[in-house]
């Protein structure tokens, strides 16, 4: 089932499928290891549920929902 990163439940593992971002943002995310097919997990919320903290390749990264919405993911059952 396809979803965006922004509506991932806490601790739900997912695989990145699509990146619908401008060039600069894409490069920035690439730098942090965010490519298609990479595994990602939402670990916790900030007090106002935006931004959220995601775990990717052993690193915690904070992303705003508005950006996370542009990242399509496929849920993975552990």
């Amino acid at each position: 089932m396809y979803k965006t990163l922004a509506n991932l439940e806490i601790n739900q593992l997912a695989q990145i499928k699509t990146l619908d971002l401008d060039k600069d943002m894409q490069k920035r995310l690439n730098d942090l290891g965010i490519f298609s097919n990479v595994l990602i997990k939402c670990i916790f919320n900030s007090p106002f549920k935006d931004p959220k903290a995601y775990l990717i390749n052993d690193t915690l990264i904070a992303l705003r929902n508005i950006d996370a919405k542009k990242i399509g993911v496929k849920l993975i059952n552990e």
């Binding site: 920035r28 995310l29 915690l60 990264i61 904070a62």
Partner: peptide, 11 residues
Amino acid sequence: KSSSFILELPS
């Protein structure tokens, strides 16, 4: 426009 915010949360 607001640009993006990507921040690492170090251990």
